[in-house]
Design a protein around this nucleic acid. Sequence first.
DNA 1: TATAAAACTTACTCTTGGTTAGTTTTTTGT
DNA 2: ACAAAAAACTAACCAAGAGTAAGTTTTATA
Lengths: 226, 226
Amino acid sequence: MRSKSIRSIRRAELSRAAFEAVVQFGLRRTTLDKVGAIAGVSKGVVLHHFKEKSALLEAVFRRSNTLLSESVVELYRYAETPYERLWAIIVANFFETIFNRRVCQAWVSLISEVPHNEGCQRVQIANNERIRSNLMHELKHFLPEGEAEKVARHLGVHIDGIWVRAGLLPAPVETDVAVSEMEFVISKMLPFDEISAAKHKNARQKIEKIANIALGSKAFKDKVMQ
Amino acid sequence: MRSKSIRSIRRAELSRAAFEAVVQFGLRRTTLDKVGAIAGVSKGVVLHHFKEKSALLEAVFRRSNTLLSESVVELYRYAETPYERLWAIIVANFFETIFNRRVCQAWVSLISEVPHNEGCQRVQIANNERIRSNLMHELKHFLPEGEAEKVARHLGVHIDGIWVRAGLLPAPVETDVAVSEMEFVISKMLPFDEISAAKHKNARQKIEKIANIALGSKAFKDKVMQ
DNA sequence: TATAAAACTTACTCTTGGTTAGTTTTTTGT
DNA sequence: ACAAAAAACTAACCAAGAGTAAGTTTTATA
């Protein structure tokens, strides 16, 4: 048991180090030596645990996607209505612990690996599918199936778009700006009378308050950053 | 005069070759040797005309963005109403000569250079700004200023989102699918009664017909691909 | 046509990803 | 408890990559 544990601990350490390297230097300037230096080991150790750079990058990519999905799961625990669950998905995708310039830049770097790395491709597809199905599940409460599908795809693509922009622009994109942009989309795509507008507003506020506690906690941040 | 011309010709040849290399191998696997081989010259020539790899990549990035903006300009020439100009922007961004798996993958590769390359960053910002202002100019005919601004940003981000998805997914995204997705957004964001719906439909059809001739022509394709 | 400048070539340096062969530590079957 | 096996780690290497430097050829110009 311990043997397997050591390996998985090392792999976790190394993918964290690699992520840090990508954040600092960008994918093209990330070398195995730098990753090793950040992790406090030699390049040899890196290649012992990941047979090649691609495998390491896949692990980094998987890790960063897992973090995102864990945020959603975490917020889901407190969301009690379709409104709240919808906002949980959105807020989780843009909460500043995860959604910040450094991480968005790293993400932009990492996705360039996807087209030429089957493992990354699988992760990416699974991730898209997961978020689409999460959204669908909630949108079905507001829209007929066909319409809900279109809106779900639209919201998913738009989330990606905001992430890309945040990674490419020199000025940081604030959580509040991103979430408000999503609110604008929702106000146009979902039935939006006075009553539902109020429900959305309440749901957003409640979830944001919870996010500040759950995702802003030191425990969660440590999991993400450390 | 000729001296300057030779230099610019070589630079154009080399950035085309580099683009081709990025399409084939991805940014991380693109080497100066490969670029040289594709251009039919030695690595030394590449480095003579671009002092370093970053400078070459900046040229590639600039080139691919120029192509896009030239498509818009080309279609603009035939667009006579705000409806048609709006659709010209959208169709130009997704016409298959430019919007295809290979090119989208290359684009996804290239943007990873942006955060760590000032030149690319400037190009990217200018590009965002250009498309935003193009959109704004037309949207002002349909919406009050403030609303138009939100919608312009939204459409711009969404275009990026579709491009990223097209670069990341293994299955190609058809022009028609992408444009229809934009149509869906427009139908939700702009005033959309029976009359305007018909006008949008006509505008889209007219512009698509023109695009097939203007952007599908051998002359234009040669400019893009050759 | 002499001279300067630009285009190109070649040979080299140093870094990087990856291999191999060997050493130490940990796990496990008895 | 302990020998054998497996896993973790190290160090010395190699081939390919980016970039340099110094030289040669071609082109432009006064």
